[in-house]
Design a protein around this nucleic acid. Structure first.
Lengths: 221, 221
DNA sequence: TAGATTGTTAATCGATTAACAATC
DNA sequence: TAGATTGTTAATCGATTAACAATC
């Protein structure tokens, strides 16, 4: 794909620029250059400018970018001006941790309900209700939820995905450690924490000499 | 880097092959071909063979690979034959969810202790003790822990990283949403859940027509 | 103005895939 | 054997970085 087909990495970086810009904003920084953002995120300045160019964000030939303006353009691109509603399917360890996750709240990502097959966990009276799976479809319809977090055991994941898609969910954050096969077109982002830490162990156990001194030039933390 | 400098993606794929092979093993599958593994993981067969070649894993010119043999070779490469000990710093939402995370247990990744600054959370008597930060250094020394999960709020993350490195931790799984600057050489893997779901919202909100029917040929789930 | 920074095009780099000889 | 699969080298593809004209 050329780069019309929106590159996932570019969108990920856009989120990171946003995080850096928020910290700058709260420190009262007014102007920022592509080199500052590049340093803070770990890419070259030309990458930053290329990303901006892709999202039609422009600055000033001499004066860089105005932090506040940049921030509001990125907010708008990422849909940060409205509430972003999601549901969680599977209220076990991570599922319930994410129901009250501060980083989500800070991003206006709001968990509107949890779902579980375990009778004992059902509690529609809670602040964030936990409902039985039978309520999934009507709930998604009524609240127009598009995104769901899939946090059930591996053995149940594929079936639950099918149910979610049938209910109308369009995007899935999948924590189950397998490649899901969607029964209808959707967006799936996988987070595999075990693989992530396994990878860490591999590199810790295989490092010989001190590896390259892990790029550390930062302009704005 | 050519590809002597061990590519992160190859190690990640190795973990995924392992997961697929375990499922095959439990289903009694004896032989597997690179094409099966490629399909299951979402890469081409030549990628699988290239990965194996990199890790010096060989098969049979005609008969593919023996599942059990392959599995034990990968287990050995990934260090799965011994317990993998880790600590968690910050016992909030995700921190405490990961203390008893089943996917970790299944991988023989063992959380040996948690650490927190909050007096109320300290409890050295628990199954997995939760200790004050002052215990970090002696604990890491005594138990020879190399890997730590950093699950504290953004504002504390950099300081806590410095403390962890000073204590002797060599690898960090970082959940804080910023780029950390290590004060000594170490391995850092970042997991940014808010960015991950933000990305999902972006693509869900920007999809026009049905995107490419999300590769779905699977040989072995 | 001179110096510095953007926006964009060209070059580089690295990772994935294709191709194919070797061989079981 | 003939057909199929590995292991490896060559080709492709895409993403990142360098370079530079435009310009404030």
């Amino acid at each position: 794909m050329p780069d019309v087909v929106t590159n996932k990495n570019a969108v990920i970086r856009l989120s990171k620029y946003k995080n850096v810009l928020r910290r700058m904003h709260s420190r009262g920084v007014v102007r920022v250059y592509s080199s500052n953002l590049g340093n803070a995120v770990g890419v070259k300045a030309s990458q930053v400018r290329k990303d901006f160019s892709f999202f039609k964000i422009t600055g000033n030939k001499k004066g860089g970018y105005i932090v506040d303006d940049l921030l509001s353009m990125i907010h708008s691109i990422l849909g940060k001006n409205s509430l972003q509603k999601a549901i969680i399917i599977g209220c076990g360890n991570i599922g319930s941790a994410l129901m009250n996750y501060r980083e989500f709240q800070r991003e206006r990502i709001t968990i509107v309900a949890g779902f579980d097959t375990d009778e004992g966990k059902i509690d529609p009276a809670r602040d964030i209700p936990i409902l039985p799976m039978s309520e999934l479809k009507p709930f998604v319809r009524e609240h127009r939820v598009k995104v769901g977090i899939l946090a059930v055991p591996e053995s149940a994941a594929q079936d639950v995905l099918d149910t979610m898609l049938a209910a109308g969910v369009e995007g899935i954050l999948n924590f189950a450690p397998l490649r899901l096969v969607p029964s209808s077109p959707c967006v799936i982002n996988n987070v595999n924490l075990a693989v992530e830490i396994e990878n860490l162990f591999y590199f810790v156990n295989h490092r010989e000499y001190d590896p390259l001194p892990t790029a550390s030039d930062e302009d704005y933390g």
